[in-house]
């Protein structure tokens, strides 16, 4: 317990590593390599905060979320939830602790059991944790349906009778049923129409205010993340390259990868244009990631030392804006490429 972090920190992730072994062989399997999906990720989330986790496909965002919830076993590292190391507690303790941590999934189709009614789906957590039974359970399910903006009459319906947005609301109601403290939102709006995205995002924000929730919000859509996050962490090939408050990250990106990522966000105004930074090449394979800074193969500012020195997140300015780059923060004239030519107020 003494290793536990300060009290207002709800979730503290330290040097989290998840490798997926690649095996060969028919009966006797031997390991021939590993996909380094998450390779030493550290961050902390304060109570009531929303931390956005962005990165392109294959950067390890989703794996990070699943390992934190122990839906996958970690390779190494530590995760403290309210000061307790999730990887060191017993099965029974973990089962009880699951009430406090929930997840909302990306795919509203595969996240709901097609053979169960909405009432059974939302009622299941109540059953598992003995929170309510019989009439009380029915009442609680109807209440939860109302909270997420669905009709309480829908309890006896099946998931296939709902639209994607409605299904996502059912998934949210299921997560809320146990009164969690932390919800990991794994790209909760990526599969939805743009018009529905806004509704679900607003719902998530309202719920956060009402129930004092803390979110780890995983997404690849930067405009969505900016809208909902207090702070944002940027991931590239299994590592976090930059963490800053949402405003700071968007106005003053330090890592060259963040810069390139931000330059790709479309501006919803016909009059404004910005210079895109087009990164050369593709994302390298996580089976055999580049040495040193993993971004050096595509970086516009890479020096020779970048392929040798591994980069850790460093808070150069003492304001909580940390970046894993030894070149960019010291450039006198920063490239303005990622910044809007004409800032919108």
């Amino acid at each position: 317990m003494s290793a536990g972090p300060a009290n207002d920190i709800l979730l503290d992730v330290r040097k989290l590593v998840k490798y997926f072994p690649i095996t060969k062989g028919f009966i006797v399997q031997r390991q021939v390599g590993a996909v380094k999906a998450v390779d030493g990720v550290s961050f902390a989330i304060r109570r009531g905060e929303t931390l956005g986790l962005v990165g392109e496909s294959g950067s390890g965002k989703t794996t990070t979320g699943r390992v934190i919830l122990r839906l996958m076993e970690p390779t190494s590292g530590e995760v403290f939830f309210e000061g307790r190391n999730l990887f060191k507690i017993t099965k029974e303790e973990l089962r009880k602790l699951r009430r406090d941590m929930q997840i909302i999934f990306q795919d509203p189709y595969s996240s709901l059991n097609p053979r169960m009614t909405v009432g059974d789906i939302i009622g299941e957590p109540l059953e598992i944790h003995n929170l309510a039974r019989g009439k009380e359970k029915v009442r609680r399910v109807q209440e939860l349906l109302e909270v997420v903006g669905l009709s309480p009459h829908h309890t006896n319906r099946y998931p296939h009778e709902f639209s994607g947005g409605q299904r996502q609301r059912i998934g949210i109601a299921r997560a809320l049923a146990v009164n969690p403290k932390l919800i990991i939102c794994d790209e909760p709006v990526s599969a939805l129409d743009v018009s529905i995205q806004a509704q679900v995002l607003n719902l998530l924000e309202e719920l956060q205010k009402e129930f004092g929730l803390t979110y780890l919000f995983i997404a690849h859509d930067l405009s969505v993340v900016k809208h909902i996050s207090d702070r944002i962490a940027v991931m590239y090939l299994g590592k976090i390259v930059e963490i800053a408050t949402a405003d700071e990250l968007f106005s003053n990106p330090q890592h060259p990868y963040t810069e390139a990522l931000l330059s790709a966000v479309p501006i919803p105004h016909p009059g404004f244009r910005r210079d895109r930074i087009i990164l050369p090449g593709d994302v390298p394979s996580p089976v055999n990631p580049p040495s040193g800074c993993r971004f050096h193969t595509r970086c516009l500012y890479a020096r020779e030392s970048c392929s040798i020195n591994e980069q850790d997140l460093v808070d150069y300015w003492g304001n909580g804006h940390t970046v894993a780059c030894e070149v960019q923060p010291f450039r006198q004239q920063r490239s303005k490429a990622a910044v809007l030519k004409q800032p919108t107020a």
Partner: peptide, 26 residues
């Protein structure tokens, strides 16, 4: 590998419950 199996696990469901309540019926 479907998300609803992970959802049940995240809710604290036992292996038996996931297997017989969620997977086998499907």
């Amino acid at each position: 590998t479907q998300d609803f199996a992970d959802a049940a696990r995240a809710l604290g469901a036992s292996d038996a419950r996931i297997l017989f309540r969620h997977l086998v019926p499907n």
